[in-house]
């Protein structure tokens, strides 16, 4: 039995909790309840005949007043870096968080997620910016926790990357 720790990173209200809940419990709520500290969930996934228990650490989102503490990231085998497509600023937050995460996790694999694809009208991030990130080697996925769009794929992909890392 293999166990892995995955951390959800990103600015506040980008949909970290929503993604985890969609993935683990197949539910979505419009209501915003900010995460305080950390909320932990687990999910058993099967990747190439390997059973892996994922421990999902859903951290509070970073905002102007509260920086994400590195200690929660310790021991993560991988992380999901989440931004909100309707708020360009969350992209910057994610990028700065990645710098910290890279150090703490010693280059653990991660996937960059731009969430809320269902909110087309409010979209603020242009494809150029996304392409630029992809070119720098980042795995970027556009998801919607609300419409269950590519959520599972994101987690599966990260898990595979983590297993390959080894």
């Amino acid at each position: 039995m293999i166990k892995k720790k995955i951390t959800m990173l990103g600015a506040f209200a980008v949909g970290k909790t929503s993604l985890v809940q969609r993935f683990v419990n197949s539910i979505f709520s419009e209501k915003y309840q900010t995460t305080i500290g950390v909320k932990i969930d687990q999910k058993l996934v099967k990747i190439d005949d390997h059973l892996v228990t994922l421990m999902l650490w859903d951290l509070y989102g970073e905002d102007d007043f509260l920086k994400v503490k590195s200690s929660y990231l310790m021991g993560s085998s991988g992380y999901l870096l989440v931004a909100d497509g309707t708020r360009a600023k969350t992209l910057e937050v994610a990028i700065s968080l990645q710098k910290m995460a890279r150090e703490v996790t010693q280059n653990a694999p991660f996937i960059f997620i731009i969430n809320k694809t269902d909110l087309n009208d409010l979209w603020e991030i242009d494809t150029e910016a996304i392409d630029k990130l992809r070119k720098s080697g980042w795995e970027v996925l556009l998801t919607s926790a609300k419409e269950n769009f590519r959520v599972e794929e994101a987690f599966d992909k990260l898990t595979k990357m983590m297993l390959q890392q080894k």
Binding site: K3, K5, G37, V38, I40, D41, Q42, T53, M55, W57, K69, S71, Y72, M74
Partner: peptide
Amino acid sequence: EANLVSAMLTAIRDF
């Protein structure tokens, strides 16, 4: 849910 408890304890410890 031992897995969860363990993770939570660690989280509390980190905190």
